[in-house]
Design a protein around this nucleic acid. Structure first.
Length: 378
DNA sequence: AAAGAGGGCAACCGCCCACTC
DNA sequence: GGAGTGGGCGGTTGCCCTCTT
């Protein structure tokens, strides 16, 4: 519309690629790199649109892509990231090593979306479809807040990716020393093009969760990423307990949390619902308490984004309590001095549910960590 | 065994954004 | 600042394969 096509389409071939065409494209890129996609078809002797060549290379011919069935971990990661980022397939793809955005998109549309639908979860909102009890207004606002936070994180991701891209040139000419943490990632040579590929900055699920949670509590604390908007409360020694809020249930506060966090109570419900993606992600005990794996608030194995927190320190417990509305009313920032921070939640904090979830979240963590070591660069 | 239905996925299309002039 | 261009992204299409009847 109002724009000339990327190339002259008359006489150009469309449709499935033949092995001969693949070979031509592969050989050309291996020898020369892709350069200008528009100019590539003529140089490579292909009767194809440059865009078509680019797609074919990115989605199929690149040597560093994995094909075949998605693993359970990959599926879970896709679902998690989709809950946060929506249909931002390229962003999601940066966290799935060797998978292309197109492949992830297809897999979502053909498998995961249907599976969530069958489970009674809206694949768009990632919320239970029949949640008639929820306060429509409040939840809409909460969803908007969460979405807003996700957008912030998305923007940050893009900004970091841009920074990495920009710095890539510098790093090619001035390779990094042994400091592997520089730029939060390493330079990996691209076999085909000979260009250095830099790992995109990692927005992992856990950072995103951190963003959600910190957004709820409105407490500023920078994490390692220089451009990160994510923060986390200065919580040190004790567990953080958050109840089933917004449904007449109480908030059991941590001493370091400001009173304003109580105002975010409804958002916890959204957070909770975000987690109800499958049985592994959240469990409830007999009392209705909801257990998160604490390591979900950590990032890479060598980079704990919640500085100073042990696994035991960082634990979210969503606890249902019918008669506990008082806490919400009684607590304030001035009174939250820590003396009772564990009062309601310490008992049985580490129970079987926790252990069950530990494995699940650790698997997600491992996957995210793995993705941090190698991601395709287009 | 054959025909129709449905699913999976590669590829295309059109829009958008960043960059250059 | 505006137009042109290249590249990237998400949505959609259509072919092919498998399953069902």
């Amino acid at each position: 519309m109002g724009r000339s096509p990327c190339c002259e389409k008359v006489g150009l071939k469309k449709g499935p690629w033949t092995p001969e065409e693949d070979q031509k494209l592969l050989a050309y890129i291996e020898q020369h790199g892709h350069g200008s996609w528009r100019a590539l078809p003529a140089k490579a002797g292909l009767q194809r649109c440059g865009k078509s060549c680019r797609l074919r290379w990115i989605n199929y011919l690149r040597p560093d892509i994995k094909r075949g069935k998605f693993s359970l971990q990959e599926e879970q990661t896709i679902i998690q990231l989709h809950a946060l980022l929506g249909n931002r397939w390229s962003a999601i793809a940066t966290h799935l090593p060797k998978r292309t955005d197109n492949e992830i998109k297809n897999y979502w549309n053909t498998h995961l979306k249907k599976r969530l639908t069958k489970m009674g979860i809206d694949p768009v909102t990632h919320k239970p479809k029949t949640n008639a009890l929820g306060s429509a207004i409040g939840q809409t606002r909460d969803a908007a807040n969460l979405s807003h936070m996700a957008q912030w994180e998305s923007a940050r991701l893009e900004a970091e990716a841009r920074l990495v891209r920009e710095s890539k040139v510098l790093l090619v000419t001035n390779p990094p020393s042994q400091d592997h943490h520089q730029l939060n990632g390493g330079q990996i040579p691209n076999k085909a093009t000979g260009l250095a590929a830099s790992r995109p900055q990692c927005l992992d699920v856990l950072k995103a969760w951190q963003g959600v949670v910190s957004g709820m509590f409105g407490i500023a604390r920078d994490i390692e990423s220089p451009t990160s908007t994510l923060n986390f409360p200065e919580n040190n020694n004790n567990m953080l307990a958050i109840s089933n809020l917004g449904f007449g249930q109480n908030f059991i506060g941590n001493n370091s949390l400001p009173a304003s966090c109580f105002e975010k109570s409804n958002q916890m419900q959204v957070l909770k619902e975000k987690i109800i993606l499958d049985d592994h992600e959240m469990t409830t005990d007999q009392g209705g308490a909801i257990w998160f794996q604490e390591s979900s608030f950590r990032t890479t194995a060598h980079e704990n984004i919640i500085e100073g927190l042990s696994e035991e320190d960082v634990m979210l417990v969503c606890e249902s309590s019918d008669g506990g509305g008082h806490h919400h009313q009684q607590k304030s920032s001035s009174t939250m001095d820590g003396e009772d921070q564990n009062s309601d939640i310490n008992n049985g904090a580490y129970n079987a549910n926790f252990e069950d979830n530990r494995n699940y979240w650790n698997s997600i963590l491992n996957l995210v960590n793995a993705s941090a070591t190698w991601s395709p660069v287009f």
